[in-house]
């Protein structure tokens, strides 16, 4: 087989590819923190909330984790439009990513909170600290540190999952790739490039999250504990 690579589309579709990469990064960046915050709030609600809240959070988590992301996106975009609520493709994509990541990180953070020895909370109570102080100073930093590798995986999965958003005409990297190959018919070369770009983006995200961990978890940095 003598296949001749042709990467000339990199030049002719340069601006489209760059805008696709930008959109993928944008979707990821605006979804990670709200998704993590939602997940943490849900973990707290499921662990310490009143009965009704625990039930509500459990239903949310299981509903999201047991249905495909693309159906969630379609439901938000096409489904809500039927009811007259037009939220636009970009907003629909971000909302879907946030509620999806929220559900998964809720369970990850719950594991983190439960892994903290009860004695520490007892000691903090005995030092007259309030529930809120204990949460922010003792529980959250330790829980996040304990489950950080799992959170990083989840955020990278989320970044990769942005690739389905082209289905609702959000022209991120995968959408751009589809357009380019449909014009050039160079599917092999185009998707090879798209895959390499995703690999680079995922590596960058991993490095950023690693850097964030070095800043956030002082003890790990000082004791040089590998994450």
């Amino acid at each position: 087989m003598d296949y001749v690579f042709d990467f000339s589309f990199l030049e002719s579709f340069r601006s489209e590819i760059i805008s696709g990469v930008r959109l993928t990064i944008l979707l990821t960046v605006v979804s990670i923190l709200p998704g993590f915050a939602l997940g943490t709030a849900c973990a707290v609600g499921r662990l310490y909330g009143p009965r009704w809240l625990q039930t509500a959070v459990t239903i949310y988590i299981e509903a999201i984790r047991n249905t495909p992301l693309i159906i969630q996106v379609f439901w938000l975009f096409f489904g809500l439009a039927v009811l007259g609520a037009r939220i636009g493709p970009f907003n629909a994509a971000v909302i879907a990513l946030v509620i999806n990541t929220g559900a998964y990180s809720a369970e990850i953070m719950r594991a983190g909170f439960q892994a903290i020895p009860k004695g520490q909370l007892e000691a903090a109570n005995c030092l007259a600290m309030t529930r809120r102080q204990i949460f922010w100073s003792i529980q959250l930093p330790q829980a996040a540190e304990l489950v950080y590798p799992a959170l990083v995986s989840q955020f990278i999965l989320m970044m990769l999952a942005t690739s389905i958003m082209s289905q609702i005409s959000v022209e991120e990297l995968t959408g751009v790739g589809y357009q380019v190959q449909s014009i050039t018919f160079r599917g092999f070369d185009v998707y090879l490039v798209i895959a390499v770009l995703y690999l680079a983006l995922a590596t960058m995200l991993r490095l950023c999250l690693h850097g964030a961990a070095q800043l956030a978890f002082t003890r790990l940095r000082k004791l040089r504990t590998p994450l």
């Binding site: 004695g119 520490q120 903090a124 003792i138 330790q142 978890f217």
Partner: peptide, 21 residues
């Protein structure tokens, strides 16, 4: 079982409650 806060230095363990409370 001591119940120190492992993510904080000795000094931070000691001063956490005096600062917050």
């Amino acid at each position: 079982s001591y119940n120190l806060f492992p993510h904080l230095t000795v000094e931070q363990n000691v001063t956490l409650a005096p600062r917050k409370v």
